[in-house]
Simulated assay, not measured.
Amino acid sequence: MTCVVLMTKKKIPWNLVKSNFICLIFSGIALAGNWIFLYGSYQYTTVTNATLAYYFAPVIVMICSPIMLHEHLSVKKILCIFTAVIGMVMIVGTGLSAFGKQDLLGIFLGVIAAVFYASLMLVNKFIHDMDKLELTMIQLGTAAVLLFFYVFFTEGLAFLSVSKSALPFIALLGIVNTGIGFWLFFSGMQKLSGQSIAVLSYVDPLVAILISGVVLQERMTVVQVLGGILLLGSTFTSEVKSLHKPHKNIIA
């Protein structure tokens, strides 16, 4: 991400960083917490369960928006929240009976990751006048520092003994998935309508679920499938509802 900023010759507006300092710190903490609990979720449950739990974040934003952002909660949004909660209950309940307590822990960690992600979206609403690319670089940098200390205090220097065979994959995740991925995302946002962005954001969970079933051969019950449809469908419906207004959310 730093290389992208240098290539585009963007300068960090330190005066804006100073005025938004507290929110930037909280957003970095939220991003780091999001990653910690999401990857922790992957260790205990399937990619599908973790992804669906993670995408409970928009529901949390809808619930908190009237309090934090003073936004009106319409009847349609209330119905979407209710439907999403039913979907999550179906996923959690079936996961516990079909797979066991370990999967329940993974889903729980996924929901905590969703809380951090929702916090990131809400905090970003209070950050003003900053370019999306610069904001993302600062948030990623803050999260990287926090994650370094987290790994150091939880694992010690064990992370230095990562096998050589894993290094290319780590580099791939860092450079392609994070750096180039965010760059393409924000570049595309500037040329797409709000409706297109909202629709394309749901490619992420659908691809994750598809890979989980086809490539990883992970199991998913019929009830969980229905719960996932209710969860993703309700949050998507809520997004479509808000497309008539300018999209100001910055998701990093």
Results as ranks from 00 to 15, higher is better:
G33C: 03
A50D: 03
G188Q: 07
Y202G: 03
M137E: 05
F82R: 10
F56Y: 08
I197E: 11
S187V: 08
S165Q: 13
S161H: 06
S163N: 10
Y202L: 06
S19G: 01
F153T: 14
A32I: 06
M121A: 12
L216S: 14
V4L: 11
Q224E: 15
S97C: 07
H128G: 00
V214F: 01
K101L: 15
W35H: 05
L157P: 00
N20A: 07
H70S: 08
V162W: 01
Y55M: 11
H70I: 09
Q224W: 02
S193I: 09
V240Y: 09
L133T: 10
K9T: 14
W183Y: 15
M90N: 05
A57D: 07
G87T: 14
K191E: 11
L120N: 12
H70M: 11
H72D: 15
I22K: 03
F153S: 10
T51M: 10
D131F: 01
L120E: 10
I22R: 00
H128F: 02
S161A: 07
G93R: 06
I209G: 03
Y150R: 13
I229N: 06
C80V: 12
Y42K: 14
F185N: 12
G174Y: 02
L52Y: 05
I229L: 09
M62R: 06
E218H: 08
I86K: 06
K11H: 08
M88E: 08
I175R: 11
I25Y: 05
V145S: 09
P66L: 04
V215K: 02
A32W: 00
H244V: 05
F152S: 12
L96Y: 03
K241V: 07
K76V: 06
K125Y: 01
L226K: 02
C64H: 06
W35Y: 08
P13T: 08
T45M: 06
K125P: 08
L6V: 04
N49D: 15
F185Q: 15
I170D: 10
F152L: 15
T2W: 03
F26A: 10
M68S: 13
I211N: 10
F185E: 13
T8E: 15
A113Q: 06
V85W: 00
D129A: 05
L173A: 12
G227T: 09
N177G: 11
A114M: 07
V47F: 13
